[in-house]
Structure formats: C-alpha cells, structure tokens
Design a protein around this nucleic acid. Structure first.
Lengths: 225, 225
DNA sequence: GCAAAAGTGTTAGGTATACACCCATGC
DNA sequence: GCATGGGTGTATACCTAACACTTTTGC
C-alpha cells in the first residue's frame, strides 16, 4: 500500500457519528430522536443524535461523548452498525458518518426527559432528516438479526425481568407471536439466564419469578427464533 | 442534533479504505496482500490494499478505485466490514479506515500476478502492518458467519462448479469436514443452485456435474452448516 | 484393472411444534 | 369469586446425523 502523508486537500470530509438507540416500553419499540431544524433542507424533522468526531477520540469515544452531552445518556450498550459515505447524505456539507446501534432498558425510556430529544414509537415514524431513513432500516434489520443469535435482548430489559418480558422483546422486535411453553424451554435450555429467587411485586395478578442474565456481556448463541 | 458547519480544525483525519480479499485455491484460503515498507514503524510487512477516499467519491467508490489502480482487480464482490478509528492505528498519521471484505474466484487467485501484491495462504499469516491483524480477524469471522446464512460462497467459486467444490468452500473456511450426502441434500433443498447440464472436463476420474447459482446476487438463507 | 472421485438412501435420534389447563394474587 | 397473567407436559412431525457401496472415467 503506497499511502502518502495525507495532504490538506484530502482532509476534506468531516467525520461524524450517529446513534440509533432502541428501547421497549409498553410492548412497543421506540427510538430516540432529536428535532433537526436546518432549513432549507431539513426543517423540523426527527434525526438521530450524533455529532462530529474530534482529533483526540475514536468513533466509539465520540458517540459516547455526544450521547452524554446532547441527550444525557451514558453507559448504554452500543455497537457499530455501518459507515455512511454518500456524497450528499448531508446536503449541507460532506460528512461521513459512522452509525451505531444502542439499546436501553425500559426505565430509561420511561424516565427520560431531555430538551428536544424524545422517544418515538417506531409505528409513528414518518421521515427522518439526512440519510437517517436508510440508517434506521439498517439498524432495525441488524437488531432483528442479532436478537436471534446473540444475547442482545439483555440490554433492552431491566437487570431483573420475567420470562414473559423477555419473550415480549422477541415478539415486539420480530413482529411474531411465540408459544409461551416452547419459548421458556428453549431459553432455559440455553443456560444464559438464572432465577434470582425474587418475585415481581406490585402486580395485581400472580407474581412472576424474576430472572437475570448470567453474563453482563453479549454472547453468541445457536438461533433462538 | 446541533451540527455546526465543520470548521477547518475538525477536518483533521484522512479517510481511507482497506480491503481484505479472500480467494480459495487448492483447498486453501488465501488473502491478497501488498508489501508495506514504511520504516520505522512498518518495515517490509504485508498489509491489505487500500488508500484514501477522495472528495468526489463514496467509500465504496474509493475501494473499487484503489483495487483497480493498485492491484488490478475490478468487478469483484465487496461488502463493508467495519470502520477502524483507533487514534494510533496508523502510527504515522491519524487515518480512519473503512474496512471491506472481498471475494474472488479461484481463477483470479491462480492467474493473478501484479507487482508487489500476492496471495498469501492464511496458514502462513504472521504479522500485518497497521491494525491489519485485527482487521483480518474481523474479516475472517464475518466471512464465516455469512457463509452459514447467505450465498456468499458463490463469489468464491467459478460460475460453474461441482458440488464437491462448493462443499470444499464450506470445509476450508469453517475448518470442518462435512458429510457429502447430507451436504448435497441440504444445498439442493435450498433451491439456490441449478444443474447446467455440462460436465467437468479433463479430470482423470469420473467427471462431476456442473452447477451454477440461480441468482447472481447474495441471498439470505436458513443456516446451512 | 486399478486408482480416483462421483453419486446415491435409509434409519435412528433428537429437536421443534402444537396444544390446554390449573395456580397464585389483588381487588 | 373473579379477573389477570404465571406456570407447566406430552405427543407428533420434522429435521439432522450417521453411515457404505456402486459408478464412471483416465491411464
């Protein structure tokens, strides 16, 4: 590879990051959006949080920094999605953006309140700013894929959860109904979750047993669904 | 998202692409490498072909251009792998690189001859320049994953191939032995390949029937292996 | 005729699916 | 006592995995 020292004229593009953050509440999938108001091209449309990468940080650093600064989210599960480099993806400037997927627990969605950012149920999605429509489609496809062969579901649930809640994560994202008995058999056979010994409280029906994932980190699995 | 017009100081990084190109010949997986000689950090080590992204092109455009110009490969299957943004990944400059995976047919590997580029059997890999060790590991993991649930194998075979050759693609990359009868049953049941009616020629044993993929484009499948 | 790879079915075990009722709790 | 969701087992169909011999060709 004959790489020259990058001359000034080649450092033309701004590098950015954007994050598609998913959360489930009330059996509905939501994404975190901010209002974008950059007329004439992008006037009052939702867009995903993000921002430029700085000289002293990696893309991962940048996405964490922007999420903390702009929408007050930190410590969430993030993974790289895809890099978007179409010339006109931001019609104002040439910006190449590294897209990320994030997942948060239901409490984060419920308790969240910050400025111009809000949780949009995916059923109400219309048109995003920039190329964020494409980014959303890729993020959702990736989330669906990963759900089936990894433990990514753990980041969409509280630390302790019922088996029904776990099942609902799959049903909501994959848009299918699953058989309760078969789902439990399969999940328990995988040996990835454990009973905590505690029970649900404050429900007006029979309280469910609470479970937790054995590992805090994402694992690969044989296909679940 | 409050994105400012990117000031000069934010356009610090050079954007590059690199490609990990795989090919199988003689039941061995190979990757295409070029010699990198950039002392003191990278002295006579193999590295993957690539180069900078220019103002007027996307990352996809750039990787195609560099492969054509530098190693005389064009029209091959390429897909985006991951974006590498570690501050010191190129110890000479800050360069963020979009990594790609590529696949070529056995003829390309066999007939190939160009300057300082050559096909390295993966069993002989030692140390790559830059962060290309990490890039290689991710590329191989991705190739293994995709092999099982897509038709990516088609890009590692000639247009017409025998069922044994197809099986060998799986065996070489997944490092497993597969049962011939079961493999054939499974592949044929997927309805992704068709008999061409032609037979192998010039072999000193019983000639095998030649098959071709029904579609030229990559498809998703239920898991094969 | 012999070396080399092609081609071809069956069986057994395991996995996935379909399915319905009783239980514990709050009100 | 009733409404709500929690929790549990079995039978069947399907799929997967294991396994060996005959065929065709070149030399």
């Amino acid at each position: 590879m004959t790489m020259k020292k990058a001359p000034e004229e080649l450092r033309f593009a701004a590098m950015a990051v954007d994050a598609v953050i998913f959360g489930i509440v009330d059996k509905k999938l939501h994404v975190l959006v901010q209002n974008v108001n950059r007329p004439p091209h992008y006037a009052n449309m939702p867009g995903f949080p993000g921002g430029l990468i700085e000289k002293t940080e990696t893309a991962e650093d940048a996405v964490e920094r922007h999420l903390t600064d702009k929408v007050h989210l930190s410590g969430i599960h993030l993974e790289q999605l895809y890099t978007f480099s179409d010339i006109d993806r931001d019609r104002r400037n040439r910006v190449i953006s590294v897209g990320y997927i994030g997942c948060v627990t239901p409490e984060v969605v419920t308790q969240y309140s910050f400025d111009d950012a809000h949780w949009l149920p995916v059923s109400k999605i219309k048109k995003f700013a920039y190329d964020h429509d494409e980014m959303y489609q890729m993020a959702l496809a990736r989330l669906r894929g990963k759900l089936s062969y990894t433990t990514i579901a753990q980041f969409l649930l509280s630390k302790e959860f019922t088996l029904t809640q776990l099942q609902e994560v799959y049903e909501v994202i994959l848009k299918t109904e699953l058989d309760k008995r078969n789902f439990r058999k399969k999940i328990l056979a995988l040996d990835i979750i454990k009973e905590t010994g505690r029970m649900q409280e404050g429900v007006k029906n029979r309280p469910a047993a609470l479970y937790a994932f054995k590992s805090k980190s994402i694992k690969e699995l044989p296909p679940i669904v």
